[in-house]
Design a protein around this nucleic acid. Sequence first.
DNA 1: AAGACGGGGAG
DNA 2: CTCCCAGTCTT
Length: 410
Amino acid sequence: MTVDVKQFFSTELLAWYRLVKRDLPWRKNRDPYRVWVSEIMLQQTRVDTVIPYYERFMAKFPTVRELAAAPEEEVLKSWEGLGYYSRARNLQAGAREVVERYGGIVPDDKTAVASLKGVGPYTSGAIMSIAFNRPEPAVDGNVMRVLSRYFCLEDDIAKPSTRVGIEKRAVSLIPEGAAGDFNQALMELGALVCTPKSPVCLTCPVMEHCAGRLAGKETELPVKTKAKPPREELRAAVIIAGSGEHAGKVLVRQRPAKGLLAQMWEFPHLLVDEHGEDAALADKLARSLHEETGLLIRPTGRLMDADHVFSHIHWKMKIYEADLGAAVTGAGSEKAWPAAGSASGRAAQTLYAAEASAAYEDSAAASSAAPSRAKLPAHYRWIGREEMEQLTFPNLFLRVLNQYWANSKR
DNA sequence: AAGACGGGGAG
DNA sequence: CTCCCAGTCTT
């Protein structure tokens, strides 16, 4: 690669950026904390999605110290709906580290920044270059696409080794004293001009020396192996209407501290077999819930289906409605069950009633209290619409819950 | 090297 | 539908 073509790229791209750059909230100043927060939020997340979250987050946690001092649930709540929630926990852990080890000042030190939780090669480079104007590469998906095209590189960008190679090129392109602007220019070009599907080459400031375009390969590049499709999981979920002191409320539970949607709230659900009738699925769910909580629930019908696709799992949820079955005799409620009329549905319902009866006896013997009055495990809770504001729900459950309350209102 | 980890917007 | 987005961490 000749020096001219690189020189041309750097000069033209930088000039272009300074002319057309977007006025984004995190570009108001170079406060390293503001840059840091923005870069974490922008991981795998579009600019337009991030903007409102960023504004709210910075208003609520304006400094490293305030973020470090906040209760973790408040930070998580600020992240509600953004996804990849470990980002929020890691960001706060990083803030606490900065307070404890660096007196609340984000250090102008590559090694120190890179060691913060949730800060990988891209983010450390972004912080060092944008906040401190250090000549570090900040290679994200945009940059890999732009440079793959400009230099006509056919390496698979899904491979970790490819990013390392592109980082080397990226460093060599940084103009003296302009690391921050140049790195942002690279990403701005990828976002506005050199887009994945149909790049707008005719408006590109560096098109005349773009090797990918000159080879007619701009739409084939970058090369990237396809991701595997997410595995499917059928889940039976239930929204349980409380009664008595819990009237108007529903039962929710908090997920474990580790793993998918860690620490977030949800309504009860259970992984079930791909086959199975409504009554059988609801029955499994009811039994499982009884084991966990001691509660005896009575499914009353199917509420809705909800599909939710994560990057690695596809949840197909069948969502049932239930109330707290008081006595066993009422278990075969007449109108409610959708499978009513089908012989197998009735059979399963009968089975459920019998089991519930047995369970009731066990539970009553063990606790000498009505199951519905028994103390819930700590991670279960009855909540109304207002209490929802305190708890953090993934969007999937938020949508269903809101729809449930909208329907039950009239 | 491969999988876990959210959610949404664009074509 | 498919792709993929200002990625990181764990195995």
